Simulated assay, not measured.
Amino acid sequence: MSRYRVNFAKEILGVPFTIGCVEIARARDAERALRAAELRFARLYGLDDWRERADRAVIESRAGI
């Protein structure tokens, strides 16, 4: 199990602006962590889908932290 951080950004004129980030403490793989972060981000902002607020989700592994 690894730790992950997913950064959500809105792209304006080709420049990404970070909207928020979600930490996933444990996930089997990056795909599962991304899905969990998308759901958590949507719940945090009261949305049906995370894409209503952000254009991109970028995942990074936080192994060893």
Score class of each variant (00 low, 15 high):
residue 1 M to K: 02
residue 2 S to Y: 03
residue 3 R to Q: 05
residue 4 Y to G: 01
residue 4 Y to I: 02
residue 5 R to W: 02
residue 6 V to Y: 09
residue 6 V to W: 07
residue 7 N to F: 14
residue 9 A to Q: 07
residue 9 A to W: 12
residue 10 K to Q: 13
residue 10 K to A: 12
residue 11 E to V: 11
residue 12 I to T: 13
residue 12 I to E: 08
residue 14 G to P: 03
residue 14 G to F: 00
residue 16 P to M: 08
residue 16 P to K: 00
residue 17 F to V: 10
residue 19 I to Y: 03
residue 20 G to A: 06
residue 20 G to C: 01
residue 21 C to V: 03
residue 21 C to F: 13
residue 21 C to W: 11
residue 22 V to W: 07
residue 23 E to R: 15
residue 23 E to T: 15
residue 23 E to A: 14
residue 24 I to R: 07
residue 25 A to D: 10
residue 25 A to W: 08
residue 26 R to P: 06
residue 26 R to I: 07
residue 27 A to Y: 03
residue 27 A to F: 02
residue 28 R to N: 01
residue 28 R to M: 03
residue 28 R to V: 06
residue 28 R to I: 04
residue 28 R to Q: 04
residue 29 D to H: 04
residue 30 A to P: 05
residue 30 A to D: 08
residue 31 E to G: 02
residue 31 E to N: 02
residue 32 R to T: 04
residue 32 R to H: 04
residue 33 A to M: 01
residue 33 A to F: 04
residue 34 L to K: 02
residue 35 R to M: 00
residue 35 R to Y: 03
residue 36 A to S: 09
residue 36 A to N: 09
residue 36 A to C: 07
residue 37 A to M: 06
residue 37 A to G: 02
residue 38 E to S: 05
residue 38 E to I: 00
residue 39 L to E: 06
residue 41 F to N: 00
residue 42 A to M: 10
residue 44 L to Q: 14
residue 45 Y to G: 06
residue 48 D to V: 14
residue 48 D to K: 15
residue 48 D to Y: 15
residue 49 D to N: 14
residue 49 D to G: 13
residue 49 D to T: 10
residue 50 W to D: 01
residue 50 W to K: 05
residue 50 W to V: 10
residue 50 W to Q: 08
residue 51 R to P: 03
residue 53 R to I: 12
residue 53 R to N: 11
residue 54 A to H: 13
residue 54 A to K: 12
residue 57 A to Q: 10
residue 58 V to C: 03
residue 58 V to K: 00
residue 58 V to T: 12
residue 58 V to M: 06
residue 59 I to M: 10
residue 59 I to V: 13
residue 59 I to C: 05
residue 60 E to T: 12
residue 61 S to F: 00
residue 62 R to Q: 10
residue 63 A to I: 06
residue 63 A to G: 03
residue 64 G to K: 02
residue 64 G to P: 00
